[in-house]
Amino acid sequence: MSATDRARRTNFLLDVTLFVICILLLTPLILLIANGFKTPQEMLVWPPTLFPKDPTLENFHKVFTETPLLRWMLNSFLFAILSTVAIVATSALAGYIIGKFPFRTINIIFILFLATAIIPFEVYMIPLYFQVKALGLLNSVGGLLVGYLVMSFGIFLIRQNVIASIPDELLEAARIDGAGELWIFWYVVLPLLRGPLAALAVLAFFQAWTAFAWPIIVMTRKKSFTIEVGLANFQSAYTVDLSLLSAASAAVMVPSVLAFVLLRRNFVEGIAASGMKE
């Protein structure tokens, strides 16, 4: 067997493997969307059908009229956007300062930031709840945001990018050129961090969008639920309304898939590239 044949065979096997993995990953997603269009009877058919025989919009209609799904999405969206803005802002500032002004005390603070990442959220969830309650922020976006303003991984990501891709000489050149520190941050550092900040924004957005434990204990009124909490509400202790849950989940996926498609390039670039380039 020649080298080209062998290479061709390897490529073929790779393609087949990737294709199978792809199908395995996509099947639940396709099933979910399909289930949204099925009648309750078809839902229970075994084996399950991949495409609904008798597609109906009834489930979607019910979901949007009988539950405040749009309101929940809006809550989630507001929460995710505000959290993203806060995390991007705090990570950019903290990451830049830790990366470029390395005093000993700042390094200690940085290590403390990192250390918070190893404490599971569940450990401080209850004390945090009491604090939010004492502040009178239950059932408000403000209360939701309390745990989602700073991301230790974000600070770490930006610090690494600052160290790897912004040489000191660039900042020194700007200082000699007459720029103040804020100007340098705004017009030199931020534009150069566009890639990693976009990646971080996507991460932060989905972290908030998919948050569950914190919203479910802070938001107790049905109107102030986030979408994750709202979806969980479709299943009670004894019953699960599968067709409604599928329809709601399918509707909820639309904005997140859209966001990912739009920001995909930044996302991949920001995570992958941090080598020094010109």
Binding site: E169, L170, A174, R175, I176, G178, V188, P191, L192
Partner: peptide, 19 residues
């Protein structure tokens, strides 16, 4: 302050603003 010294510096790695 450096900016008030009325000097200009050329660095080894040029330090041009990449963006």
């Amino acid at each position: 302050e450096p900016k008030n010294r009325n000097i200009a510096m050329v660095f080894q790695n040029y330090a041009l603003y990449p963006h």
